[in-house]
């Protein structure tokens, strides 16, 4: 087989061999449910009689972003060392043929969020989960920018800049790139955000590492609750309120809209759990402001996904349909900013 023709499963086996050595017996790779940008494979290896269970995530040539993969690896390394429940990162690298890979330990558990939020079998897990998520999030937020100096390009606010102001500016830059048609409500929401940022007291804490995609769909669990926090691709520098608010965004509640925090707990119970776990005072107003910004970001993701189809990058009726979910997100933005209560 020529190197250009090999699939990501072959790349996964080759990456596992780099980690385990030429003497290892390596199983057939098994494809795992995964994102649009990468393929993840479960690979088992046996070295000198002991077995290793790995996940190898492969980014195909052309879609690979080695700097980003290395960033994720370096942050995972620090988080794992601090006791955060997350995959242990083992190796990161790339092949001359263009693919890059991340090798991690395989953690047991399920990651289907709908089942977690709605099934009776996981009622006990849901009860425990809020405190567990708050604990691990507090551990992540104790990581300072200096602690992850080895991670390339950790974007974040300049010294002394309000993280909310920085990420609001980034979100608008993204919006101008991805929008497919005018969205007066989102442009109004940016002005609302500016007034909020002007009005709110500046945070007194130093910026910290944030997970960057802290939602219920990235939680791996079993009947005892949290087993692993997945998908650290979005990690960057920010403030705790950003991750806290992202878990509350309406789109991932699976219909449990009275349980704003990921469909498993009321928003206030979640914020309180974060305060208890971290010992920090969490500003409800900043969380509320972040939740508006996070919904704008979700609206941008829906546009980006629709655009991937419309540009012919990835032909997909599913991506096309996501483009029509921008509207429900705009409606949520108007609810969160109080417009619904004023005029609805």
């Amino acid at each position: 087989m020529s190197p250009e023709k090999r699939g990501t499963g072959d790349v996964a086996v080759e990456a596992a061999r780099r980690v385990l050595g030429d003497g290892a017996a390596i199983s057939e790779p098994r494809k795992l449910a995964g994102g649009a940008m990468h393929d993840s494979w479960a690979v088992d290896g046996t070295v000198d009689g002991s077995s290793r269970e790995l996940v190898v995530r492969v980014s195909p040539a052309g879609r690979a972003d080695y700097e980003k993969t290395r960033r994720e690896f370096e942050v995972l390394k620090v988080a794992f060392g601090r006791g955060v429940r997350c995959p242990q990162p083992i190796d990161v690298g790339r092949f001359e043929s263009g693919e890059d890979y991340l090798v991690m330990s395989r953690v047991r558990g399920d990651s289907n969020p709908r089942q977690l939020v709605t099934s009776d079998q996981y009622a006990g897990a849901r009860k425990r989960l809020i405190a567990q998520l708050a604990e691990d999030l507090a551990r992540i937020h104790q990581i300072s920018p200096d602690d992850v100096a080895a991670a390339p390009n950790m974007r974040g606010p300049a010294a002394g800049e309000d993280p909310l102001a920085y990420h609001r500016r980034e979100a608008e830059a993204m919006f101008r790139v991805f929008l497919l048609n005018p969205h007066p409500a989102i442009d109004w929401a940016f002005r609302w955000l500016d007034r909020q940022i002007e009005r709110l007291p500046r945070p007194q804490r130093a910026p910290c590492v944030v997970h960057g995609d802290f939602r219920i769909g990235n939680v791996m669990y079993d009947e005892d609750g949290l087993t692993s926090l997945l998908d650290w691709e979005g990690t960057h520098i920010g403030e705790p309120e950003e991750d806290i608010a992202w878990l509350c965004t309406r789109v991932w509640r699976f219909g449990k809209n009275d349980l704003q925090a990921g469909g498993i707990a009321p928003r206030e119970e979640w914020v309180r759990a974060c305060e208890i776990a971290s010992g920090l005072e969490i500003s409800r107003e900043r969380v509320a402001t972040w939740e508006v910004l996070q919904n704008i970001r979700w609206a941008e993701i829906t546009m980006m996904q629709a655009r991937a189809h419309l540009d012919g990058h990835t032909q997909s009726h599913e991506l096309a349909a996501i483009g029509r979910r921008t509207a429900e997100t705009e409606l949520e933005i108007l609810r969160l900013t109080g417009v619904g209560a004023r005029v609805g």
Partner: peptide
């Protein structure tokens, strides 16, 4: 402005979701 934004978005949502 706000009543107009609300009405147009509610109408989009009535179609989309």
């Amino acid at each position: 402005l706000l009543p107009h934004l609300w009405e147009t978005i509610v109408n989009k949502v009535r179609v989309a979701s």
